[in-house]
Amino acid sequence: MEKLSIDQLNKTCSQVRRDILRMVHAVNSGHPGGSLGCTEFFVALYFNQMEHNTNFDMNGKNEDLFFLSNGHISPVWYSVLARSGYFSVEELATFRKIDSRLQGHPTTEENLPGIRIASGSLGQGLSAGIGAAQAKKINGDNKTVFVLMGDGEQQEGQVWEAAMYAAHHKVDNLIATIDLNRQQIDGLTVDVMDLQDLRKKYEAFGWEVVETKNGNDIEEVVSVIEKAKSLLGNGKPVMNLLHTEMGYGVDFMVGTHKWHGVAPNDEQLENALGQLEETLGDY
């Protein structure tokens, strides 16, 4: 796939944000907050950083793979998959509706191209990504596996089982990312269950750690992923701590957990879309 320029990436982000808002508004459900916050990351991966094949094959040999562990931010993933050509953008209109391939949380059951494992129940994606990365090693496939997790998700024990394993087994073809938006359903992570210093924790677990200070700045997102790639192949898994603002791109949604799992009403949608240019045409 052709790499988009920074300007094109920004334009794509604007359209993806419109898709997210229109999808959740249409069914009055879904998770806009985290989706909006991670838009730059998804766009950078799919339109600039990953070598991937939109002619989907489950085994994904000789291409980079992406796993979403915090499956509730499915709207941003579906939009990016459709916009990069895995399926038609019109299908975004079926999100969360009966008989759709775009389930509330991503699944393989309906054979949606681009999805390789179900996620939603938190804490499981890192394990799957590590398994896929090890399969690549056995196959002599030198491509990379990317995994995205939420920060609240770090409260799940399985994440730390996986973190310990990846370092012990030197899974150095893996770049995991944590969306550090500091929010979870019941409030701030620092109040609900403090994650403390994730850099120190992952370093203590034997990982290389890089940090994206502004995960909503596409240039920085791209450059840190490139830096993370440069650290691969040295016997250690790589962690990218991605600082984002939940709800980024819409002034009344930004920086609050209020929009974690709430859809905008008609008036709010209109207000939000007014802040985001329609760059690639709405579905």
Partner: peptide, 28 residues
């Protein structure tokens, strides 16, 4: 030895790893 993975006392991770290894054609 190259097709065997000691997971330690971490069964939840083992199930996830196994699921991931099927992606790439392994039979775990």
């Amino acid at each position: 030895p190259d097709r065997f993975f000691q997971v330690g006392i971490a069964e939840a991770n083992m199930m996830g790893l196994a699921a991931g290894m099927t992606i790439g054609g392994k039979i775990p």
